[in-house]
Amino acid sequence: MMISSFSLCLLGLCLLSLATKRNRKNALPNFKKLTTLQTRILKCVGFSCLITSALVLAEAKGLSLGLVYLGAWVTLAALTQALLLSYQPRGVPSLLVASLAAVIISVALRI
């Protein structure tokens, strides 16, 4: 379940970064404004992805090692996100789609 948990982290952070105004403007310049409710939903879904990832890891690796991996995965995913946002902000939506696909496939394969 390592790949599933990591792609969940990636997905969660993509959603969270699209939930902030400045990053959304850079990532999706032609996108119409989101309402406050929509932003909230994005944030909620994003956080639930991270929480799910934590649960998946705790289930697979035990609480202590699961938390270690969660820290590692969030750090790695955030690094990816930070690099993307500063060098290639248009890539965020693609990463979103890719990580969503990765979540579905890896959960289906249980890897």
Binding site: L16, S17, T20, R22, N23, N26, A78, Q81, A82, L83, L85, S86, Y87
Partner: peptide
């Protein structure tokens, strides 16, 4: 944490 990390290089 609110703004999310953005690095203005």
């Amino acid at each position: 944490f609110k703004d999310f990390f953005s690095f203005r290089r």
